[in-house]
Write a protein that binds this DNA or RNA. Structure first.
Ligand SMILES: [Mn+2]
Ligand SMILES: [Mn+2]
Ligand SMILES: [Zn+2]
Ligand SMILES: [Zn+2]
Lengths: 218, 218
DNA sequence: ATGTAATTGATAACTATTATCATGTCAAGA
DNA sequence: TCTTGACATGATAATAGTTATCAATTACAT
């Protein structure tokens, strides 16, 4: 534990660059900028100081999702939005009222010390750039799916197909009925069996259970 | 890109263990459980399958803050709370209404595709365990500080001390006035100078600026 | 101006994750 | 049931991001 923090030239430049850039750079981003002024600085020094400075409360360390740490010059309390494509991070305003609505719930006996709200999206730049990549129908991102159910999209499709036919059918039939490219079907069925929504009366034959019909009708 | 997913024994056990454990394990956690049933399984297989299964929509990959990926058997849309001490992750319920309040704001031109709400706290177990560690006054965690201001806590203290005295003072005086253990003070002062709230009329002497007084009175 | 504890740069080490590849296995059709 | 080739596995190397180590240097209170 160090007793006194010294304001070294390196620290000064790091702070300067962080305040200048206006973004939420990673240690590496910052290193690239800082070394223009201090060509002999070590990446370790940048990491070390970002850590120390954030512990001292001079800057803030963001624990946004993703593998890399990011840092913020702005000490005010705020939340962030990040681009799922280019990873850039921007500030968002969340009103006290919004935060209060959230904080008022039950929280499994936890003592709350913080709340992180993080929007995911496509930044304007990336949106334009990706007009050509429209084939990727679905992007599994974050915790949110467009449909609401405890079944996955494909699971629901498979189950619906099974509900249609009276007689137990094979995975090829299901592929035809669902239009799912024969891919993953056996996998989905295994999951559905595990959940008790599907049974296999004979090898490679499947049918929906009562429980399965029930979940479909929700 | 693979055409058919096969339900291998390894996959089956991985799914089984994930559904059983009821937590939000990391690949490594899961590996430890799975290898009790499949002692020869490779960690790479666990990683590989968690990735594949989540892409197939059989399980969900959580991109909660922190460096390690976690996985969730529950496909329903929900958010999480995690313990700042032991890192365990639990589910929380957030109502549609709460989520809507958040989503209705401006978002810097981003196209929204997801929203992550993450509470941070101390789980009941860790709370009990840490009755003895009360010296660490402050835990810089997440994005939230208890005080609201664009100044850090210590910065405000230093600035307040400077506002008190008419004559420029040295860092030792400030240490005495604030009770801050002489630590970090020069660092805080440098930051305050950079922000324009403090000036140095002479070497090692500091005084508050007009701008500094202004920010204090907010 | 001086002594010394804090800091630096270079680099090794570490953690989490992904890629590679030779070998093994599953499942659909004959 | 047997065959066959795409798919999956285990072992291990490689990678990305970050942290630790340590001898040499430097800031700063006095
Ligand atoms: Mn920010
Ligand atoms: Mn969950
Ligand atoms: Zn973008
Ligand atoms: Zn805990």
């Amino acid at each position: 534990m160090t007793a006194t923090l010294r304001m070294t030239h390196q620290r000064e430049i790091i702070l300067q660059e962080l305040s200048r850039c206006g973004t939420h750079p990673t240690a590496d981003d910052l290193y690239e900028h800082v070394r223009k002024q201090l060509p002999r600085i070590s990446l370790a020094t940048v990491y070390r100081n970002l850590e120390i400075l954030s512990e001292a409360g001079l800057i803030k360390k963001l624990e946004v999702s993703g593998r890399r740490k990011r840092f913020d010059w702005d000490l005010a309390e705020h939340n962030h939005i990040s681009c799922m494509k280019c990873q850039r991070v921007d500030n968002i305003d969340t009103t006290a009222a919004q935060v209060d609505t959230l904080s008022s719930g039950r929280h499994k006996g936890y003592t709350l010390t913080g709340l992180r709200i993080e929007f995911i999206g496509l930044c304007p730049t990336c949106r334009l750039h990706s007009e050509e990549h429209k084939e990727k129908g679905e992007q599994t991102m974050g915790c949110r799916k467009s449909t609401t159910s405890t079944l996955g999209d494909q699971q629901r499709q498979v189950l619906e197909a099974l509900a249609q036919t009276a007689t137990p059918c094979g995975s090829k039939d299901i592929a035809a009925a669902t239009g799912l490219e024969s891919k993953q079907i056996s996998c989905q069925i295994t999951a559905l069996k595990k959940k008790g929504y599907v049974e296999s009366p004979a090898r490679c034959r499947y049918e929906i259970t009562e429980q399965g019909k029930q979940i479909l009708s929700q």
